[in-house]
Amino acid sequence: MKKNVVIKINESWCKSCEICVSFCPKKVYDMGQFYPIVARPEECTGCKLCEKLCPDFAIQIIIPEETKKTK
């Protein structure tokens, strides 16, 4: 498990299609009333599948530099 993965959701661009909620392999997201909620951030492995599958450019996954170097 990678630590310190930052998940940013741009709510003004999100259209609540729930693709991130449905396809995250670790089920990190839960659906809120309008936008996804990062419910289990400790489960996130930083695979960036949600970022790639988000059609609305609304998710940004930031992996700090030190974890990037160890890859």
């Binding site: 259209k15 790639k52 059609p55 609305d56 450019f57």
Partner: peptide
């Protein structure tokens, strides 16, 4: 991106944005 044009007009659940990202 031309950020002043965002968010785009594609519907929720449409995959066009995923292709653009690719």
């Amino acid at each position: 991106l031309r950020q002043d044009k965002m968010p785009h007009i594609w519907c929720d659940g449409c995959g066009h944005g995923i292709i653009l990202k690719s």
